[in-house]
């Protein structure tokens, strides 16, 4: 039974955590693609930027002597999300909107997003250096160890406070997004614009407003995802650049422009990655005595070595693009 609990710790919890981060990021990527029709490569850096905003707020709160029962990072998150949304709007106004007004092709906007990436990266490193930071320097990270001896296991079920918060937050976001897109006037207008931008304009839908709402959602969710990732691991300037590929893979696998697809894609990639790097030997160990001599279990029986975790998202991405280019949920056709 210990093996089962180990599997749960290593795959189910880790996969759900990773999947949540990917899903939150991919929602932003997919919405921006649906509305503005370009691949927003600076999204990973928006996540990092949001995490640093939350970090500054948390440090500031700590400096003011504010003590909180749960990690300060969560308490300041709503405010950080608001600031990140404002920053996202500013970035759009400063760098993307002028190009759109000129009627630039989507690929020009894609290149412009490289410029934004470089500027955010440069500023972050300028102010924070290249080192790592932790939200838990001044307060402990609560770790829950659930005793599982009742089912005959010697290992506890381990889950940390940030992991629980992250999964809860993702559930809240998914439900809220669902109601926003299917019930609210603006949410429906967003879907309408993703579906047929010309007709949305002709219907009198305020497309500028929809674009602003898109950036607000994408920016605040990027901040939430980045902060959660930073709370779970550590905070550093290249935090999110490394997960840009899985996030885009999630958005593409789910079908670009499809919010639900991005969520499904995020969890698919998250679980696929954790399963691929999982060391099966530890679970199969009880079988050691049963197995014949020639089938000795090696010490490390992972499908993919951890260093090559990235290949998992990539392989899923390429297979999707080759077999079903519009994604598992049919994506935007342009």
């Amino acid at each position: 039974m210990s093996e089962l609990v180990f599997f749960f710790n290593q795959v189910v919890i880790a996969g759900a955590v990773l999947g949540s981060v990917y899903a939150l990021g991919a929602i932003g990527v997919t919405l921006i693609f649906g509305i503005l029709r370009f691949a927003h490569f600076a999204h990973g850096d928006m996540m990092t930027m949001g995490a640093f905003v939350a970090f500054i707020l948390a440090v500031g709160a700590g400096a003011l002597g504010i003590q909180t029962p749960i990690a300060t990072g969560f308490i300041v998150l709503p405010l950080a999300m608001v600031i990140a949304a404002v920053l996202a709007l500013g970035i759009d106004k400063g760098f993307y909107a002028p190009l759109r007004r000129r009627g630039a092709r989507p690929v020009t906007l894609l290149i412009a997003s490289i410029g934004v990436t470089l500027m955010i990266q440069g500023l972050l490193r300028l102010f924070f250096g290249t080192g790592t930071y932790s939200f838990f320097d001044t307060q402990p990270k609560t770790i829950f160890r659930i005793d599982t001896s009742a089912i005959g296991s010697t290992r506890p079920l381990v889950v940390t406070e940030p992991q629980i918060m992250l999964i809860l937050l993702t559930i809240v976001v998914v439900v809220a997004l669902h109601f926003f897109l299917t019930r609210s006037r603006l949410g429906k207008a967003m879907r309408a614009m993703a579906d047929n931008p010309d007709l949305a304009q002709v219907s009198g839908i305020n497309t500028q407003l929809v674009v602003r709402v898109t950036w607000i959602i994408a920016g605040s969710l990027a901040c939430a995802a980045g902060t959660m990732l930073a709370l779970d691991v550590t905070l550093k300037p290249d935090l999110a650049f490394n997960i840009l590929l899985p996030i885009f893979a999630a958005a593409i696998v789910g079908g670009l422009g499809q919010a639900y697809g991005a969520i499904a894609g995020g969890f698919l990639i998250g679980f696929a990655e954790t399963l691929a790097v999982f060391n099966w030997t530890l679970v199969l160990r009880p079988l050691r005595d049963v197995l014949p001599e020639w089938l000795e279990l090696p010490n490390n029986l992972a499908l993919v070595p951890t260093e090559y975790k990235l290949t998992v998202a990539f392989v899923i991405l390429v297979i999707t693009l080759l077999v079903r280019p519009t994604g598992i949920f049919k994506g935007a056709s342009t």
Partner: peptide, 26 residues
């Protein structure tokens, strides 16, 4: 930490250069 900071400055400069170029000399 002037040393490490100025090393990162060029990343920002690069971002500004390409943004300006896309805007004014696409």
């Amino acid at each position: 930490e002037i040393e490490s900071r100025s090393a990162q400055m060029r990343v920002f400069v690069l971002g500004v250069v390409i943004s300006v170029a896309l805007r004014y000399a696409p």
